[in-house]
Design a binder for these strands. Structure first.
Lengths: 94, 94
DNA sequence: TATCTATTTAGAAATATTTCTAAATAACCA
DNA sequence: TGGTTATTTAGAAATATTTCTAAATAGATA
């Protein structure tokens, strides 16, 4: 979506932990929820924030909704941070 | 300080723009403020959030306070994101 | 079809964030 | 010293975020 949304999404510890869980592969909303001491509704809210930020995408199978990490947006933020660190003109060349 | 504070600090567009300004070198609080249509008090608040997140540090000279980007914390977040992307076990080796 | 399971939506309460104005500090200079 | 400039602090108002409970939806199965 936008850097604003992406960084906002990353700014919450629950959402960062969800992303770490998804690092190992896709999980259903319920599986994600079982890692937290929170209602399914709250997890659903956080998943929606991550989805709007394009940090995860969902696929539906039977009556489950599976969430998966979207690596490409993580790469985009890394690019932004890399620019901040030094800009292209400072890339080290040997 | 912590990832929580760092990402929270990065989640605001004004603060991200301040960081981009500081990319070119240190600036006083007033110089930073002149780039925005906001009161000095508001800029001071944002600088304080960035400072608490260790994204900037300040040095005082005369009656000015200069702010400078702290690259090392930017690098730490990039490390976290890099882990998220694939973890050490996935680093490409040729 | 009826009902059970998984998940989301709606709405409300508590808390946090962002911004302002006005006042306080702190250091400079005439 | 007294006044000017740069910046921060305090406190308040507006808005946004996070969480819950209860209800709604959607699909699966008996």
């Amino acid at each position: 979506m936008s850097f604003a949304h992406t960084f906002k999404a990353l700014s919450d510890p629950v959402r960062r932990e969800i992303l770490v869980l998804l690092k190992r592969g896709r999980l259903s909303a319920g599986e994600i929820g079982s890692h937290f001491d929170m209602t399914g509704a709250t997890i659903s809210y956080h998943l929606n924030v991550l989805k709007k930020a394009d940090l995860v995408f969902e696929t539906k199978y039977k009556n489950y909704v599976y969430y998966e990490l979207n690596v490409s947006v993580v790469e985009e933020i890394m690019m932004w941070l890399s620019e901040l660190k030094g800009g292209t003109e400072n890339v080290e060349r040997k």
